[in-house]
Each structure stands twice: as C-alpha cells, then as structure tokens.
Amino acid sequence: MKPLSYARPRTQAEAAALVRRSPDAVFIAGGTNLTDLMKLDVVTPDLLVDVQDLDLTELTHHEWGTVVGAGVTNAGLAGDIGIRRRYPLVSEAILAGASGQIRNAASIAGNLLQRTRCGYFQDVTKPCNKRSPGSGCPAIAGAHRELGVLGTSEHCVATHPSDMAVALAALDAVVRVRRATGSVSALTLDELYRLPGDRPDRDTTLEPGDLVTAVELPAPTGAPSRYRKVRDRTSFAFALVSVAAMLKVEDGVAVDVRLAYGGVAPRPWRARTAEAALLGERPTDSLITQALQAEFATARPLPDNAFKINLAASLTRAVVRDLAPAQKAGR
C-alpha cells in the first residue's frame, strides 16, 4: 500500500469535490472490499474520502416503496423487520452472502460497487484487462470456472459478485446518485452497470465523484419470492450460480414472473427473455427449460464454466417448484 491521505467530510458536495480533485481519490464506506484491494495493490488510491458522516443511513418504508440509504449496513438491511416482511428476497440474498462480520461492516453502496472476485484481477503479477487495460485476459484460456457466460466479451469474462444486487434487479430497484456536479440521477441496475465490451476497466456508468446516496424499492407486489444460491460450500462462499425469483400464479398460469441471475454475468442478469416466455403460461419444467435456453442463446460459455447454463436451468425449475407447488400437477 502506498501512503495516502484521508478526509471525513460533512457534506456531500464537499465529498464530491474532494474525489474529483485527484484521479486516484476514492470513497470508502465499510472498507471490506476496498481495504482488501488496497492490500493487494489492485487499487492504489492517494486519498480516501469517508462517507460515514454524509447522512446516508435513512431506511424508511412508504406505501409507494422503500428508501434504503447507501450507508445502511448489509446486516441492518437484512435484519430490518419492514424489509423482511415487504421484500424477504432482499434479506435472503444479503444473508446468502459473505459472513456476519462482513455484513455488519459492509454498506449498501459498497455492496453494489464491489469489484469482481476474478483471481487474475486480484493478482497484480498477472495481466488483466479490467485492472490494466490492454494487458490481456488470462482467464479465457486459464481459470474461468467461476466466471461469466452472458454479457461477457473477448476482453473480459468476469462476473459481478454481489448477491444483494441480484435481488434488487428482480425487484426493479433504482439507484439514486448524486452526480459530482450536484444533479441527481435515478438509475436502474442495467443503467448502473456496464457490460465490459472493450473497456472492462469500467464496471459502471458512474463518473469520479458520483456518490450513490440510496436505493429505492418500488411497492411490494406480493408475489411469492425466493433467492437460491449454488456454491462450492454451504455457506460463506461466492455464487457459482444464484437466482432471485418472483412468481405469482393464478388459475395455473404465471401472471407475474421475475427472474434475475448472479454468478453468470458482469452484472446481475435480469432474464427478460425467459420472463416473457413464461408470462401467461403454465410454468412447467419443459417450458422453463425452453425459456432458459432462449435466455442463454447468446451465452459465450468457456470449457470450464459451460456447466453454469444447465445449472441455471435446473435451479430455476427447482425454485419454481417451490414457489408454485400447485403447478406440479401441470408438469
């Protein structure tokens, strides 16, 4: 780690100005991802701008939805009784990630903006287009079992590691951003996260000094939901594949269906093609299989991660069986 300065501003404007002043300045929240990457020399800031005094800890429930401040902790959000009752999918996804200690320190914004766990990205002795643009992507010919199959490019096949973001994608959450210029934007997750293309170094559309201030959840739909995560050990491991599913069935047919996947793409992957194939239909095993085939039609599987495509399909069948037990007869 190189020597660095630190500031703990009291206003968002001051914080944004500080980050804009130097190209190597970054915000720090819980520090659970940033400190790790600084120790590895993957991120080498010259200034840390602490967000803890920026008034980002609102957590309020309204008829139209819920506002979650960017500085609320992951544990605090998952444990909040209003979140558990209204959006159990969010609690489940958060509790499926990291550990109790990490969730106590980690913030909502930090969770959304955490970097990929690709091993080459974390190892500065190796080339990596995301860390040093143009140096190459050794994962494609090397270790890529954990990496992505959808939305990837020839320049980068990394996945976004967040569990919470997968639930937020299924719920149509919106991320509030205070632009460095002072204006305010509201971004869907698809607008927040970039696909790598030929610029895998840029994970998001945010510019230096843009501060994530909150996440907004629209009013709960009442559709039964479920987060399921497949990983190499039962707990405290990143996802191989995860799914956030919401399904409302009436008279045997799906009247509301949302599917988002983790562990397969550079961002939480909202499966709109599969949703469209299921909407208004009986969610039978064979239809789900077809819907998932259509969703993964553009996949670019690599030898050691092609299994994720079948895994996503079987996981979806299992989750739908949980959510619509009455549909068993329809299979």
Partner: peptide, 20 residues
Amino acid sequence: TVLVDGQRVLSCLKLVVTLD
C-alpha cells in the same frame, strides 16, 4: 474478529482512521 461498538467485525479489513 473483534467487537466494534458492540458489533462483530473483521479487524483486518477495518482501517483505524475510520474508527475515530
């Protein structure tokens, strides 16, 4: 693992300067 303001956290990922 230690307790910071009563909550368990990982001391290896906490910068002291953030704990004023």
